[in-house]
Design a protein around this nucleic acid. Structure first.
Lengths: 139, 139
DNA sequence: TTATCTTTGCAACATTGTTGCATTTGAAAG
DNA sequence: CTTTCAAATGCAACAATGTTGCAAAGATAA
């Protein structure tokens, strides 16, 4: 799916910053932070980035992942994203990559009487296969 | 357990900000944000608060909960905290209270080949019993 | 092409995280 | 009770991020 198709599908105008962000996210299979998305390109204002990410998130094209160090990353949502209330991600402590784990996790909770559960956000901290296989000594 | 006993147990000096923060956390059964802890008291500098929370967290007396809106709350750790690698909390969308759910949750994941899991952080978003029972209309 | 609604850039401000350094304080030793 | 020293605190300062208002530029439909 191309960026243009994506924007058309979600009834959003075909603007520069949106195209830029979506194409960056389409390129990579891991979630990206705002600064990773920006890279060293100074194409758009910081506020434009902020608002564009907000819009894309509100429309459900992308979703936000808040990590335990309060950093934030963004990833494309899958089609059946809204139906799923369990949002699981893996965060590599070494290389900082974030991977969506849709459908690969199970969660269950006994809440106190009267509580209602809407959404569950899971962040797994650990090491990805690359960082296990090729640990970097220099640090 | 008193604040003084707690500090003694963890080999920390009996200082003003530590006593203040720990007594606030002992009072309440829910997690508190830095500003909630502070209240409108101006007893300690912002940086002192920040560093004290950091120290208490590093020593394992308290732990940090990062919510999906990137706000942060703190709660006292239970004794067997270190052994447990599943950290689950409930966040009420309405009243913003955060409750620890130690031992009340189960989690399971199929990670890709070679990945290693260290810790799992879960935040459940929903409504607490009070907010279900007495919904506030004005908003 | 024009008209209109949306997006963007810029200025500005709030909150939070973070460090360095000088001063004060806790508590252990004398 | 004093001295002493490491540790804690307050202050200044800066970075990163979140957020709003407003004017200028851009996208799309007529």
């Amino acid at each position: 799916m191309t960026v243009e198709e994506l924007l058309y599908k979600y009834d959003l105008k075909n603007t520069g910053c949106r195209k830029y962000i979506l194409s960056e996210l389409l390129k990579s299979d891991t979630a990206q932070s705002e600064s990773e998305l920006k890279g060293n390109s100074d194409l758009f204002d910081r506020v434009t980035f902020y608002r564009t990410l907000k819009t894309l998130e509100e429309r459900g094209i992308i979703h936000k992942i808040v990590l335990n160090d309060n950093s934030v990353k963004y990833a494309l949502s899958s089609d059946h994203h809204e139906e799923d209330h369990l949002h699981s991600h893996f965060h590599c402590e070494k290389c900082d990559e974030v991977l969506c784990l849709r459908g690969k996790t199970r969660f269950d909770a006994e809440l106190p009487q009267g509580f209602i559960m809407h959404d569950v956000f899971v962040v797994i901290e650990g090491l990805c296969a690359d960082c296990v296989a090729y640990p970097v000594r220099s640090e």
